[in-house]
Nucleic acid binder design. Sequence first.
DNA 1: TCATAGTGCTTGCAATCGGAAGTACTATGG
DNA 2: CCATAGTACTTCCGATTGCAAGCACTATGA
Lengths: 154, 154
Amino acid sequence: MAHIPSMTDTSFNAVMNLLRARDVIEERIAGELASVHGLMLKEAMLLMHLEGAPLGRLTRVELAKRLHSSASTVTRMATPMEKLGLVSRQSDDRDARLAFVVLTKAGQIKITEARATLAKQADDLFQDRWQEGEIEALSGLLARLVAGAPGRLA
Amino acid sequence: MAHIPSMTDTSFNAVMNLLRARDVIEERIAGELASVHGLMLKEAMLLMHLEGAPLGRLTRVELAKRLHSSASTVTRMATPMEKLGLVSRQSDDRDARLAFVVLTKAGQIKITEARATLAKQADDLFQDRWQEGEIEALSGLLARLVAGAPGRLA
DNA sequence: TCATAGTGCTTGCAATCGGAAGTACTATGG
DNA sequence: CCATAGTACTTCCGATTGCAAGCACTATGA
């Protein structure tokens, strides 16, 4: 029933483990982020991208690229976040097509709090029998794997 | 605008890199899998789980656990795959509640082909400046991170 | 035995997503 | 100047998802 092993198994297994790891970690993180801060994971990601951007703002298409989602999704994400006061809308004088999503003070506070929760969750993940160097190695290998692709934070 | 660094940054960055890596890799893989084999990534995962299961079959709830999705999703995934002949439905004599999803011969062929494509894609991902040992290290660290969680393949 | 609790599956419902189409605006090149 | 092409955003539509509810069946224990 099992397939025949081959040279490509190492890469294949690495990819499978990566897919699974994301599922497991996202399950673990998303619940607490929602209950504690009322944020979906990707909403937190949106805020973090704004946080690191010049003037704390990005266009919707740029956010879509970084979040690996469509422009329509970003539009629909931003609307309720505006109503909550986490972001605001700002148009550009030079180009009337642009509608920046801008991080507000309330959004800054919210993402700072949410990041603390995320950092704590991340620490918990590596709490048992992980050494600092191992975590750095994992992080570095992952970063290298997706080097050049859009969406990097920090 | 950037947050204050702390001891937890290593874990945090590793988690962020993991989330991003999954996005990038899934984008890259899903398209080819769909165009070449007409399969969504999670459909391929479903078939692979069946492939490794005793008698080539699993109940819907067990599949849901392994795929990190809900039972209703598995039900709705299985229906069109039955019509394509990739899986069939089989009830249990001992327990009339159980409705196994069974891998058919056509499903076996399909997943064998799809796995070859996946393996090739995985190889491409690591093609440039990756050594076998580094890929194994990444795979091992990821496996260790999610040890004990459901959904492991092979 | 038989009421109660638990499990497996399906369906209804609301929420979410991506792509296509539409609108508005900007850039390009004669 | 102006036609054409390209970009940014929004909205509509179909598809997908999880949760809650419902149904059918099994296990428990008095």
